[in-house]
C-alpha cells in the first residue's frame, strides 16, 4: 500500500486549506487514516489538470471498499481457514479465553472479531480491533500469524 508521501506527491501541493486541513501533507495523512476522501479536496475535483491524479487517488482507496470501516481486508481467495489469526487475536482471546483462545470452537461469537465460516475467516465487530479507537496500538496478531497474507489493513 502507498504511504502518505506518495499521496502527497499527487495532491495540488498548494496548501490552500480548503479541505479543512492545514496543509496538503496533513490532508494526505487524513486520507491514509480514512478520515477524509479524495472528494474533500476541492481543487482536486474542480481543476481539470488534477483529473488524472484525482482518479488515481480515488482508485487507490477503492480497493478498500470491500473493507470494513477500519480498513481490515480479508482476501477470501487466499484464506484457507487455518484459524491462526482467530486464535492469536488478542481481542478474541480476551473475550473467549476457553473457546477460541484455547484453539477450540468459539463458545460465544458476539464479541469476537475473527471467526471461521465455511472455511474462510470472517471479520466482524471490527470496531473492537486494537488498531483502532482511542487507545490504539499497532497490533499485528492476525497479520504475522497468517501463512498466506490473507489479512491486510489498508
Amino acid at each position: 500500500m502507498t504511504n502518505a508521501m506518495e499521496i502527497y506527491q499527487m495532491l495540488p501541493k498548494t496548501n490552500c486549506k480548503k479541505c479543512g486541513k492545514t496543509s496538503c501533507m496533513a490532508f494526505a495523512v487524513a486520507l491514509m487514516a480514512r478520515e477524509l476522501t479524495a472528494d474533500d479536496c476541492p481543487p482536486l475535483i474542480e481543476e481539470s489538470k488534477y483529473k488524472e491524479n484525482y482518479e488515481k487517488i480515488s482508485g487507490l482507496f477503492k480497493t478498500s471498499e470491500g473493507a470494513t470501516e477500519t480498513g481490515l481486508i480479508v482476501h477470501e481467495d487466499l484464506c484457507f481457514g487455518c484459524g491462526n489469526c482467530v486464535v492469536a487475536c488478542p481481542v478474541n482471546v480476551a473475550n473467549d479465553p476457553y473457546g477460541v483462545g484455547s484453539g477450540k470452537a468459539p463458545s460465544k461469537t458476539e464479541k469476537l472479531i475473527l471467526i471461521i465460516e465455511d472455511g474462510i475467516v470472517k471479520a466482524q465487530n471490527v470496531g473492537e480491533c486494537r488498531r483502532f479507537g482511542k487507545n490504539k496500538i499497532l497490533c499485528n496478531g492476525c497479520i504475522v500469524t497468517c501463512p498466506v497474507e490473507a489479512i491486510e489493513f489498508v
Binding site: C79, F80, G81, A105, P106, I116, E117, D118, G119, I120
Partner: peptide, 10 residues
C-alpha cells in the same frame, strides 16, 4: 454452513 473447520474440512 460449516463453522470453525478449515477449507479442506469444509
Amino acid at each position: 454452513k460449516v463453522y470453525t473447520a478449515c477449507r479442506v474440512g469444509v
